[in-house]
Design a binder for these strands. Structure first.
Lengths: 228, 228
DNA sequence: CCGAAGCGAGAGCGGTGCTCTCTCTCGACG
DNA sequence: CGTCGAGAGAGAGCACCGCTCTCGCTTCGG
């Protein structure tokens, strides 16, 4: 590739700085990010921001993608830091990493997993980064299945569920038993619910020992999946 | 009580109409409810609304409480419509009722269980209506435990978790084994996650047969709890 | 019956996202 | 190396928002 022109480099730095300032605002004010406030913080007038982002939603989308990637990085790093055969340890580590990241970046977590903004439709470039955490969890199932320590659950799936899961499994890891995938998705759903409940204040009046509770609940799901 | 004055009755009707119009707006525009738009729809000027609600957040709170109660009604009705001994049927019915209500009232569900509004803190009068759905689920566990068909799970709880759950159980149903309550909470967390994933578009590209998937997933949690 | 309380209208404040126009600087290219 | 045009920022302005305050009018209650 040709050396990036000076103009282009300055522009890229500007974009990065806007995102950084916006992220700072996000942490304080939640999802109602004010373009004007970001511009003020940068000593610019609000209209100047539009040289870099065509709309507030585009800026939000950029932040969303970065946040998905940060979460994905955290979860994947936690998984790969474990011994490959330690399936249960990997499960717990991945879950804990997701929770830790969410607690450290609550506004960004809310942006990713909170109620969708009414007019806003997530563009396609978010789906790949968004699927990294669940893919990490499925990876644990896959590793457990290929070396035989995770067995196909006994239950029979309803036809529709079986078909849908088969299609999904084909895109992830052909051969993964559908019933196992179903349990993995239950674990992922549960993980999301746990973090959301904690972050959105649903545990405020109960369960002071959040971390122990979290570990126990993810452990229940590990049992359900059959992780040794 | 004395006959309510005409003024008071008109006022109450006014409040109800404002809430009704606001609810209609909510369905279309999501959580960013515009007081001015509501006022316009009622042929009033925006400042007149403030005769009835001191702020937009107060109006939102009123809508939230009504929504919690509507959801609570739906879940409790579904539960009581089942044969008392049919624990598993009650579990499925309650879960399905919650999902049905959420699908029928997505904006209200998002208001209840989506990301909390940054400045907004849920007032205390929301906590009682908010706990009706999980209490219904716990009621199923309790009934199953008292007639001996739900057994105390074998696992040992960590001390902290045990203590927190014991305190929680004391306020709900003294004697309910903590490990059983923990599994019930896992089911409730899972239910919330399932509905949120479906409603917030997380299943958009997979799982076309949502209802069958939902039933299977809630069935998995019923298994985990030990519902016969 | 009259005063007071309740009610709606209207103007206005500071804030928002976004558009359009204008100016000027500075970097790319002949 | 000189020029010229693309890109950057400022500023005014539009329509909207939540909220406040004042001012008349209605209507209820003592």
């Amino acid at each position: 590739m040709p050396a990036p022109s000076i103009r282009a480099r300055v522009r890229a730095e500007m974009i990065d700085e806007i995102k950084a300032v916006a992220r700072r605002h996000l942490a304080g004010d939640g999802a109602n990010l004010s373009l004007r406030a970001v511009a003020r913080d940068m000593g610019m007038v609000s209209s100047a921001i539009y040289r870099y982002f065509p709309s507030r939603d585009e800026l939000l989308t950029a932040l969303i993608i970065e946040a998905y990637d940060a979460l994905g990085d955290a979860v994947e790093a936690a998984d790969t830091a474990c011994d490959r055969p330690d399936l249960r340890g990997r499960w717990h580590a991945a879950c804990r990493a997701a929770r830790d990241w969410a607690l450290a970046n609550p506004a960004e977590y809310a942006l990713l997993y909170g109620s969708p903004v009414p007019g806003y439709a997530a563009p396609d470039d978010t789906v790949a980064p968004a699927s990294r955490p669940p893919l990490t969890l499925v990876g644990i199932l896959r590793d457990g299945f290929v070396d035989g320590r995770l067995v196909r659950p006994a239950e029979q799936l309803p036809d529709e569920v079986h078909a849908d899961l088969a299609e999904l499994a084909a895109g992830l890891f052909p051969g993964l038993p559908e019933a196992l995938l179903a349990r993995g998705m239950a674990g992922w759903t549960q993980l999301f619910g746990l973090i959301s409940f904690e972050l959105f204040g649903r545990l405020n009046r109960t369960m002071p020992h959040r971390e122990a509770y979290f570990d126990h609940q993810t452990g229940l799901m590990a049992d359900l999946i059959g992780l040794p």
